[in-house]
Every structure is written in structure tokens, then in C-alpha cells.
């Protein structure tokens, strides 16, 4: 990919979720670049991002690197340690020549599981590896986490991806292995060495590859029909002693104590009919009835 002598800036964008090892991957690459005589810049932003949010790191190398960040649409290689994070940055990839290397594994954030409406599915990126591979110039969607787990440490998935990345860049294999061994903790050198070899061998198998497990992970949600319901929540005031257990435990926080210290449904639109309050009420003062809505005939 790089030819004999690099005469322009190469741009590698590495993305993932906080805690996955994005920074480790980019540090290895940056050290490799300077050791090989290139100018190099590697830029990351941490702080809030490490708290489970998205993390990204720009690595640029060549005869002279100016901006620490890669201009949009100029990424030569996008390495994604998590599927949806890869999709987030895909528009930064060079449309005609860019290479996409991604772990197919999903990390579903709790934020994607907030909708308590009946029949709601996680708000996770719906795009499948097949759709994406179709649209990129070159792409590798691998089960890096699975491969690393089989080697004994799922956390070495980032090194599996480094193995795949090594097939696209022009550095000698020994140089990669040497710097990885110097970067990871002593006790995990062996597993990382194996992870690198595994990722490298897998990516040698072709320019557009999808691991068989990837398709299984991204199958469409099974069709389950959940009839919409009307919820009737009734509170028998005489039996309510104002303990406010229901108020505190309602997942939607739609109940409150009124001026007479009796529970009441303050925000009926938010009630999803989950019946939690009814189950918890020590005085059996709450009843929740869900009546299926009859769908009008078309």
C-alpha cells in the first residue's frame, strides 16, 4: 500500500470505546513510525471520554506531519475496536482508496436500552457487515474479540486488529512484535504475540473479508409481535399509607405523593404499564390493568 518510499502523509484513525485499548494501539503505531524514520503525530482526547464514551486517536506519519488531526475524508485506514464506533467514523474514510478494519463485536451502551415502550429494541446501529463491506474500497470485519478470547484473553482484541493492520502497512513483522512486546504488561506478552499473529494471518486471506461469526452477531431482530396496550392504573387512596415505595421504585418516575401524602399517577403519558408499583405496594393499593388495543381493520 505504501510503495517504496512514502512521499505523503499516511492517516490512520483508531476508534473504540473507553477501556478497549485504543490508545495502546495508537502508541504502538506511533513508536513504530518514529523508529522507522518518519515524522509522526498521534492525537487523542481523553477526560470525559474514558467513562465508557467513544474514544478516538489519530495517527499520521510521513516525511513531515503538520496537523495532529486528520482532515475529514482523508483517512487511509480506519481501525475500529467496536462496530458502531467504526460506523460513526466511516465518513472520514477516503471514499476511493480507504481501508476499513473492524471488530464485529458490539458494545451496547445502557443508553441504547432506555425505551420502555412495548416491543422496543436496543437503539444500536442497524447496519450489517455485509452492507458496509459492499461500500468500502477494502475492508476486514473480524471477530477480534472472539479470536482473543480463544487465545485466553479477550482484552487482547486490540492486538488482533494490529495484526490485521500490519498487513496493510509496510513495516516488518518483527518490528511490530518487538514494540508490542515492549508496550504491553510483561505477563501478557505471549498472548499479545499470539493475538498479533492470528490477526495478521486472518487478514492475509483477502482484501474484503467478513468473519463468519460477524453475520450471526448482526442478524436482524426476530419479529416478535407485541400488541400495544392501554394501561389503567388505579390507586385505592384509603389503603395507601404514603410509604412512597412505588414513587421511589417506578422506573419511569411517573408517580408522586400528593398533598394528602397519597400516591398518585402524576405523569400518565410516561407510564408503560410495567406493574412494578402494583407488585411492590405493601398495602395492595395499586392495580394496573393492560388492555390490548384493538387495531382498526384496514
Amino acid at each position: 500500500m505504501m510503495g517504496e518510499k512514502l512521499n505523503r502523509t499516511m492517516n490512520v484513525l483508531i476508534v473504540g470505546v473507553g477501556g478497549q485499548g485504543v490508545i495502546m494501539v495508537s502508541k504502538v503505531l506511533a513508536q513504530l513510525c518514529q523508529a522507522d524514520g518518519h515524522d509522526v503525530k498521534q492525537s487523542e482526547v481523553h477526560g470525559m471520554a474514558k467513562r465508557g464514551g467513544g474514544v478516538f486517536s489519530h495517527v499520521r506519519f510521513g516525511p513531515k506531519v503538520w496537523s495532529p488531526t486528520i482532515p475529514e475524508g482523508e483517512v487511509d485506514i480506519l481501525v475500529a475496536l467496536e462496530w458502531a464506533e467504526g460506523l460513526r467514523w466511516l465518513k472520514h474514510l477516503k471514499p476511493d482508496t480507504g481501508t476499513f478494519i473492524a471488530d464485529c463485536q458490539k458494545i451496547v451502551p445502557p443508553f441504547a436500552c432506555r425505551n420502555r415502550k412495548r416491543g422496543a429494541e436496543p437503539a444500536y446501529a442497524p447496519q450489517t457487515p455485509e452492507e458496509i463491506i459492499e461500500q468500502v474500497h477494502a475492508g476486514y470485519v473480524m471477530d477480534a474479540t472472539g479470536m482473543a478470547a480463544n487465545l485466553g484473553n479477550a482484552r487482547a482484541s486490540n492486538t488482533v486488529l494490529l495484526g490485521a493492520l500490519s498487513t496493510v502497512l509496510d513495516f516488518p513483522e518483527e518490528a511490530w512484535v518487538e514494540i508490542i512486546a515492549a508496550t504491553v504488561p510483561a505477563k501478557s506478552v505471549e498472548v499479545n504475540r499470539a493475538a498479533f499473529a492470528e490477526g495478521r494471518a486472518w487478514a492475509m486471506g483477502g482484501e474484503k473479508r467478513i468473519d463468519v461469526t460477524a453475520s450471526g452477531l448482526h442478524k436482524a431482530h426476530s419479529e416478535v409481535h407485541h400488541p400495544q396496550v392501554d394501561t389503567i392504573l388505579e390507586i385505592t387512596e384509603e389503603w395507601c399509607k404514603g410509604c412512597d415505595i412505588c414513587v421511589k421504585m417506578c422506573p419511569e418516575r411517573c408517580l408522586r405523593l400528593n398533598d394528602r401524602l397519597k400516591a398518585e399517577l402524576a405523569l400518565p403519558d410516561l407510564c408503560t404499564g410495567c406493574q412494578l408499583c402494583a407488585w411492590l405496594c405493601p398495602d395492595q393499593a395499586i392495580s394496573v390493568t393492560n388492555i390490548p388495543v384493538t387495531e382498526p381493520a384496514e
Binding site: 473507553g18 475524508g73 460506523l87 460513526r88 466511516l90 443508553f111 437503539a123 461500500q135
Partner: peptide, 18 residues
């Protein structure tokens, strides 16, 4: 020129407490 072929709404992933 913004010639980005991949225009889909990215998934929301705000930072969270551990």
C-alpha cells in the same frame, strides 16, 4: 466538497459512570 458516502445517524454513546 463534502463527498461523504456514509451518512447515517451515529449511535448515541455518552460517557457514563463505571
Amino acid at each position: 466538497v463534502n463527498a461523504a458516502p456514509f451518512e447515517f445517524a451515529p449511535m448515541v454513546r455518552p460517557p457514563v459512570l463505571c
